[in-house]
Write a protein that binds this DNA or RNA. Sequence first.
DNA 1: TTTTTGAAGTTTACAATATAAACATGCATG
DNA 2: CATGCATGTTTATATTGTAAACTTCAAAAA
Lengths: 205, 205
Amino acid sequence: MTALKQAYHHGDLRTALLNAALEIIADSGPQGLTIREVARRAGVSHAAPYRHFEDKDDLILAVVEQGFELLYDTMQQAKLAAGDDPLDQFAASGIAYFEFAMKFPAYYRVMFSGDLLTSTGHESLQHTSNIAFEQMTDDIEMCQQLGIVQKGDPALQAVAILSSVHGFVTLANDNRLTNLVGEQYSMEDLRDYVMTTIFEGLGVH
Amino acid sequence: MTALKQAYHHGDLRTALLNAALEIIADSGPQGLTIREVARRAGVSHAAPYRHFEDKDDLILAVVEQGFELLYDTMQQAKLAAGDDPLDQFAASGIAYFEFAMKFPAYYRVMFSGDLLTSTGHESLQHTSNIAFEQMTDDIEMCQQLGIVQKGDPALQAVAILSSVHGFVTLANDNRLTNLVGEQYSMEDLRDYVMTTIFEGLGVH
DNA sequence: TTTTTGAAGTTTACAATATAAACATGCATG
DNA sequence: CATGCATGTTTATATTGTAAACTTCAAAAA
């Protein structure tokens, strides 16, 4: 009997699998993710993951949901840290969105890779991903009442903001901006320009 | 000997494969694309595609490049059809971008699925995809000189526009907008709002 | 204490895939 | 007419997703 013996039961395999999955996505994209590699990295047999997830899609879905929760928390946190001014809060949550995407590209990528939108699990995902958006719409409505944002349907304005932010973040994440704009601007420069522009367009002041 | 005999040589297998690939992507996303299914739809053996493409990534890359060329042509076409006013032309090419994405969601999806950005073929892809962007930067510069767009680095402005447009189109394509905004607005309504907003933000008039 | 049972892992098995290698066909060119 | 090279096909191997049957072990039941 050797000194260190592997426990037959892992203890917290589910989280270990989710971590491994995220790691793989960071290393080689959602394509590179295989159940067997996840199992390998967690040090278990290739069939072990099936005790915790229905199938591959279900595993990915769990990562995605985790990502949306983290995004939501990050934005809420940023608003709390921004003080009392609603405009500051609004801007802070926007920046938090950018930074989440920059800091956790792997999360952001799976979250919007759109690969499992046809499969089941659709609904639960919709629910999780809508939370952040509804929050945004509420914030805009509040800003409108304070005269910070021009009048209009908050949902439309939210679509405009989300489009800008998501587009920027996606392009940046896929490395499609540095080639276009050169090295003269930092990512933060670009981010600020995009954000200023969309705020300008919505009459934020 | 039956009446209709299959020719041993296909004639134009390469294009047939590309068409089949696009069809599959439209049906079941980039994930659903397998070399074997492509071969099946083209009516050839599963190894035949390897006479025309290095490997799976190479096949996908060919579809992507085809997509970028089609996008570029579509935008140029729209500008020609828009008459002489540079502002009209600029708006027309923007709308053409939206419409390309709406009309060929399968193309747009692979083009920006970002799955093969790590693999080789990188450079040739960069080249193709940059053409449309450079065109955009040129157009903006022209509009600036005519006083249609406010002064500033055209590259920055192009990033802002591209972010908005790409973000909107991506979200729309992945069906992530209808859930957020309800049925009250058509896709064109949303598109126009997003475009108006970004133009407003850039001082277009 | 002993038994037993169910959740969490493992092994084995099978079908589909990517891709390489060896073979076949038939059009274009000598 | 023959023959070579591009274009197909067949055959083979390693990797994957996933199902099924088996094992282990901690905790509940006896």
